[in-house]
Design a protein around this nucleic acid. Structure first.
Lengths: 171, 171
DNA sequence: TAGCGTAGAGAACGCCCGTTCTCTGCGCCA
DNA sequence: TGGCGCAGAGAACGGGCGTTCTCTACGCTA
């Protein structure tokens, strides 16, 4: 489907290079969808960015859930999954943190999507832990691990976060 | 001094709106320094961004040190200081995380400055704690608190991080 | 006072952006 | 087969970007 091709191209390019660094022409040539059709599917670049982020949010959380579901140590599994993610070749941090830093001053819609993603992650952790304040602390470790892993290019941040989470959960 | 005026304008505008959203003309009109002189002081926009980030890095860490120095509970004081920062009117997250998300794919120099800032923060925490692996865990809480406070617009993230840090340090 | 060098203001340059429009050509129905 | 409509390719548009250049006017030296 054309919409999927456009979103695939958008995700590859926006995540890899940043949103403002990618023009609509590059989305066109990568997706193979004409500019006219592209604007029929998404009436503006902002709408395309929002669609890209929404799809990524849902897939990201579904992947995390799928990995954690079978495991006994749910919290530990979250950080194992993060470590896997950090180790992927194209890893460049959290798309939502990056978009927020780039565009929160310009676009309330993009700000809202980023906020929603973090809300959902927090809710997921609360469901995993049954103690809200511990879950909120674990969320801080998750976000911190993502930031440190990307900026320092150091996937092992996930293991340090895992060790810290174990202390918080057991304590 | 003109250089200071330019850096002040750059910091205000880049931090508030993002780097790519601010043009050199706006730096000129805000600082009152002519474009020609501006390019004598900083030979390119990238050089100006690097200078802005370097000055901010040093001032940020000096402010943190100044606040923490007198306190008994050094680690607690770090999070108190963060809470103060999060509560400032123009708070929009960490300039280095934001710049990294926006430009790490484009500019190795900016990437290096962001990485250096985080290295220095880590080193500072290690000096405070004398136990490197605990310090690295506290770093995750610091970064996580910054991210959550900015995206959720919730300065209280600092208090949750403080409580978690107390558990990690005492444990 | 005459002449020179410097610095400032802002126009100009080439390029790329997001978005729209035009023009071409192909597929469908009578 | 002839006429119609849709869709694709890409040119066009207005504007903004980073950077450079021109031109003016002022201040110092003799």
């Amino acid at each position: 489907m054309q919409e999927t091709a456009v979103l695939d191209a958008a995700e590859d390019l926006f995540y890899e290079r940043g949103i403002q660094a990618v023009g609509m022409d590059q989305i066109r040539s990568t997706s193979g969808v004409s500019l006219k059709r592209l604007y029929q599917l998404f009436p503006s670049k902002e709408a395309l960015v929002v669609a890209y982020l929404k799809r990524r949010d849902e897939r990201w959380r579904a992947d995390l859930r799928a990995y954690v579901d079978g495991k006994d140590d749910k919290v530990g599994a979250v950080f194992e999954w993060l470590h896997q993610w950090f180790s992927e070749p194209g890893f460049r941090g959290c798309a939502f943190i990056n978009s927020f830093g780039e565009l929160s001053a310009t676009s309330p819609k993009i700000t809202a999507v980023a906020r929603h993603h973090k809300d959902e992650v927090r809710a997921y952790l609360r469901g995993l832990l049954r103690d809200d304040s511990t879950a909120d602390q674990v969320l801080l470790l998750v976000e911190g691990a993502i930031v440190v892993a990307s900026i320092q290019n150091d996937p092992a941040a996930a293991w340090r976060a895992k060790a810290a989470a174990e202390v918080l959960v057991s304590g």
